[in-house]
Design a protein around this nucleic acid. Structure first.
Length: 961
RNA sequence: GGCCGCUUAGCUCAGUUGGCAGAGCACAUCGCUCACAUCGAUGGGGUCGCUGGUUCGAGUCCAGCAGCGGCCACCA
């Protein structure tokens, strides 16, 4: 025997070598002709392109393992399985990184200027970008690397332009001045999705605005109306209120704002509430609900806006909620989207009082100019307090939006931006979900997706950044014409002037990634790649980017390709730490997948994440204890390795016979494991089709460890020895190799390295040339010729018998080395067959000296006959198939010693029992101790009593004469 | 405020059409027998969140409640 393998799997020794071999084989590469000419069925996944500057984290580790499992599985099935890789230019994120870099040199991007900054960013991306794709290789990902794309590649940029112009010409892209989300740190507009809400315990401030003197009478009337409404509400509620409590409820501990009142100088004021007092400097109206009887008389009047010297009108607008606060609201159209809408309806002016950096700007009163918005907040409150116009504050929980890239609090800001009209695009994408053209795994995401689609809002696509796709719009400096063009225009289309300025903005990063499933295949050209690989099949990603990316890809797919880009959206688990917190760089609770590969191997990483994440649940890993987190995966890979080591060493180099040649020599255990293999192949295939990867891992694990390694290998050992009978030996060799080959293939998508390494070394049937060079060449399928339910039943009973005997031995203190006698009665004929055929295995694995059974016709056998059993000490049990077993203990176990041991145990237990009983009989304890404690004691008592019963039964066995 | 999910062993979770409560880890006892101590054998451990209903039978179906988590919307 020439086969030498380490007793432990050493991933470092095999993984890089195997990956190189796969690369050389070219099996990741898929040419469109395989589909278009050879007619192979394509299977396509496009990778969610990671940020070009990203570093691999566990989320990538999980998601890319999932994709690789699917890709490898389909490749084994013979599909033209294409996984298209690439990276995203990640506008804000990458620009931030480079800005930080040049900040270290003491420069800003303005110092460099646009052109130099972009050049610098390109340089950075070319040098260090895309490293993450190499990291994916370390975990075994089999992308078609020749197809690696970048969202700023010329081809993809052409697609972006085409799309922009196409949508503009269809009137689906427009430019307009609206309230958008603005990041004062990144200095750019953001889409709604990029402003992430965060719940905070904030404060609601009440501000008093003096009314114009001519409103004094109306104000007095309004105050009465307010009081009347309040009294009515109180009058209805009062009789039902419990005594004492009713009074404090409304204010929630805070100050109840006075809707109206009079200042010491006699002027009337009204009260409005806000979480952001600094914005009052930009108020241009106060609004009430038109149906609000209380304030009818005030509408049309004016208030003096404090601190500004401006007078602003009181308007009526249906948006105002009569029940919230005083029912009067300040209107700041330039800094609040709802206020903006009200201003549009009523025609009150817009007043932007902030700078892009969210400092108070030139439209703010001089005293506040240059102040940061949060300082201004304090200053405004202070100033109002000084003037007696501060109405107090209440605690108030609300959510504030933050920039998804830098977490700065986003400022709603009036700004001219480019938008995509989404409603028409959403229609087919919504229908696709409703009619099942696109399905979600887990299914509950369908509703989330549809809800978003149904309430879709226009998409702000312009960004005030330098890194990204320039907006393909030019403005003529002479005639003011706007030119939207696929190719850079040389002259104005209207006046012929060459004085054109391109729009300075770039497009949202997602404006290029939403085209990814077809732009990477050469669209807008009609390429073979597109014909062969569009639409794809599965899109696997994190739920966080369902709206950012997945939903928009589906919309773009319909608009530009006429069909959805994939049929299944797999939203994978979130990777969390042991406290359930999402792993993130900022929390410092992440795990570096490369470190895991280094310590435990890629197979261990892959198996751990796949088996750890059942569909719909999150995966928990401990960043402080990688051993605890990844040992299951490592141990399993090692187990596979060692079972392979055994197989290779015992089967040896000699060729094996084909299964057909040993058919007649197959024994029960052979037929059993082959039948189990066939069933496992079928079951795993079904689970994969349903994307239940966790179950695939678990079932494969169970078959391999619990059936093949624990049982078949043990059963087959003697038959593989030199001196074994030839027919049996050859049948065993063939079966072992067949079963091992099968399970290696089934496991290969999940743990590709160790399976490939072992598979390469497996002997092949004599006469047959090894037809395949890599394990990936075929996927095992159910083989009905191997199905053998009878063998499964029989061998399961054998397993049960062996387990029973082992258990009884242990329970009754039979020494490890001692052989026991086992007598069976009432076994069904088929089981007797099994017993005869596996007789030696049973003796060996359960240390049985003599195994006797009745003839099957009820004829009594020596030790088990009615007389025999009654007269001898022994243990007995029953199998599921009705067979009774009797295990005489006389002469095997020191009965006297066991009796003593049991007596001591019984003694100890009865002491404990006495203690519990004493407690429970103590009335003071029962009546005064907490209920749970008493319940626990009762439970203890029951459990002790049960144990006592068992022990006493056991003792009886030893007390037999 | 709306929608969704979760609650099963000490921990992480399975439990797919209702039919004897499972796995891995951890724990305990024994064992380094020539594939593997990253292993093997055996064992202990559960009022399936609470309440009620449907049913011969409920972890599973229905209603309500509680706790935790997520997404969306933002009544300033």
């Amino acid at each position: 025997m020439s086969i030498e393998l380490d007793p432990r799997l050493n991933p470092k020794a095999i993984e890089p070598r195997l990956y190189s071999r796969w690369m050389e084989s070219g099996e990741f590469t898929v040419h469109p002709s395989t589909v278009l000419e050879e007619g192979r069925d394509p299977f396509v996944i496009v990778i969610p392109p990671p940020n070009v500057t990203a570093v691999l984290h566990m989320g990538h580790g999980l998601n890319n393992t999932i994709q690789d499992v699917l890709i490898r599985w389909r490749r084994m099935q013979g599909r033209a399985s294409l996984w298209a890789p690439g990276t995203d230019h990640a506008g804000i994120a990458t620009q931030n990184v480079v800005e930080r870099l040049i900040a270290d040199e003491g420069k800003t991007r303005e110092d460099l200027g646009r052109e130099a900054f972009v050049a610098r960013t390109w340089e950075f991306v070319r040098e260090t970008g895309g490293a993450i794709l190499d990291q994916l290789k370390a975990i075994g990902c089999t992308c078609d690397w020749d197809r690696t794309r970048f969202t700023l590649d010329p081809g993809l940029s052409r697609a972006v332009r085409e799309v922009f112009v196409h949508l503009y010409e269809k009137d689906l892209i427009y430019r307009g001045e609206y309230i958008i989300n603005w990041c004062p740190r990144c200095l750019t507009a953001l889409s709604n999705e990029e402003a992430e809400g965060e719940e905070v315990d904030g404060r609601l401030f009440h501000l008093r605005y003096p009314l114009a003197p001519e409103l004094a009478e109306a104000a007095a009337a309004a105050l009465e109306a307010v009081a009347a409404v309040k009294a009515e509400a109180g009058g209805v509620g009062a009789p039902e209120e419990d005594e004492g409590e009713g009074g404090d409820r409304t204010a929630g501990g805070g100050i109840e704002p006075e809707a109206l009142g009079q200042l010491p100088d006699g002027r009337w004021y009204l009260t409005v509430s806000t979480t952001r007092p600094e914005t009052m400097l930009g108020d241009t109206a106060v609004a009430v609900n038109p149906a609000d009887e209380r304030y009818k008389g005030l509408v049309g009047g004016e208030v003096d806006l404090p601190l500004t010297g401006r007078r602003i009108p009181i308007i009526a607008d249906g948006y105002v909620d009569r029940g919230f606060g005083t029912g009067m609201v300040k209107v700041t159209p330039a800094h609040d989207p709802n206020d903006f809408d009200m201003a549009q309806r009523s025609g009150v002016p817009l007043l932007d009082v902030m700078t892009p950096e969210a400092k108070m700007g030139e439209n703010a009163p001089e005293a506040f100019q240059g102040m940061d918005r949060f300082d201004a907040r304090k200053a405004v409150v202070q100033a109002l307090q000084d003037q007696g116009l501060y109405g107090g504050e209440d605690p108030h929980t609300h959510s504030i939006p933050r920039c998804y890239r830098c977490t700065t609090v986003v400022e709603p800001r009036l700004s001219e931006q480019w938008f995509v009209k989404m409603k028409p695009l959403a229609e087919p994408a919504l229908k696709a979900s409703q009619d099942g053209t696109v399905t979600f795994v887990p299914g509950r995401w369908q509703k989330v997706y549809e809800h978003w689609m149904e309430n879709i809002r226009d998409w702000c696509i312009s960004r005030q950044l330098w890194w990204g796709h320039r907006i393909p719009v030019w403005y003529c400096q002479d005639c003011g014409e706007t030119i939207v063009a696929r190719d850079d225009p040389a002259a104005c289309t209207a006046c012929g002037s060459a004085a054109l300025e391109q729009d300075p903005d770039v497009l949202d990063t997602w404006f290029s990634s939403w085209l990814w499933p077809f732009s990477i295949f050469g669209w807008p050209d009609k390429t073979d790649d597109l014909k062969a690989f569009y639409p794809g099949h599965v899109l696997s990603t994190a739920p966080e980017i369902l709206f950012f990316w997945v939903a928009r890809m589906i919309m773009a797919g319909y608009e530009f390709m006429g069909e959805a880009p994939f049929s299944t959206v797999y939203l994978h688990a979130t990777v969390r730490d042991t406290e359930g917190r999402k792993m993130s760089k900022s929390l410092g609770n992440g795990i570096d997948p490369l470190e895991v590969v280094d310590q435990f191997g890629a197979d261990a990483l892959r198996f751990t994440v796949i088996s750890g994440a059942a569909v719909g649940t999150d995966i928990q890993l401990n960043p402080d204890d990688l051993e605890a987190s990844f040992a299951p995966g490592r141990n399993f890979a090692n187990k596979v390795w060692n079972a392979g080591r055994f197989t290779l060493m015992t089967v040896g180099d000699d060729p094996i016979k084909p299964l057909s040649a040993v058919k007649d020599d197959l024994e029960l255990s052979d037929r059993w494991i082959l039948s189990r293999l066939s069933a496992t192949a079928e079951s795993l295939t079904q689970e994969l089709e349903k994307f239940r990867l966790h179950d695939v891992a678990e079932k494969a694990y169970h078959f391999f460890w619990g059936e093949l390694a624990d049982w078949y290998l043990e059963l087959v050992k003697p038959r593989l020895r030199e001196d074994a009978e030839e027919g049996s030996k050859q049948a065993a060799r063939t079966t072992l190799v067949t079963a091992f080959d099968g399970i290696l293939r089934l496991l290969h998508p999940i743990i590709p390295f160790v399976t490939e390494e072992l598979w390469q070394k497996l002997p092949w049937p004599e006469g047959a040339q090894r037809p395949e060079s890599l394990i990936s060449a075929s996927w095992p399928t159910k083989d009905t010729a191997l199905d053998d339910p009878e063998a499964e039943r029989q061998l399961e009973a054998v397993q049960e018998l062996i387990t029973q005997v082992r258990s009884l031995r242990k329970e009754y203190g039979v020494p490890e080395g001692a052989e026991v006698e086992v007598a069976l009665t009432g076994s069904p004929p088929s089981f007797q067959e099994a017993l005869i055929s596996e007789d030696s295995s049973i003796r060996r694995l359960a240390r049985v000296g003599t195994l006797t059974m009745d003839s099957g016709a009820g004829e009594p056998v020596e030790a088990t006959g009615p007389g025999g059993r009654a007269s001898r000490a022994g243990a007995h049990g029953v199998l599921k198939n009705g067979t009774e077993l009797f295990l005489p203990l006389e002469g095997v176990v020191d009965l006297e010693k066991e009796r003593e041991r049991l007596s001591v145990e019984i003694q100890r237990l009865s002491e404990q029992l006495k203690g519990v009983r004493g407690k429970l009989e103590n009335e003071a304890f029962v009546s005064k101790a907490p209920e749970e404690v008493v319940a626990r004691e009762r439970q203890k008592q029951a459990s002790f009593q049960e144990q006592m019963g068992k022990l006493q039964e056991k003792l009886k066995v030893f007390q037999r004469p």
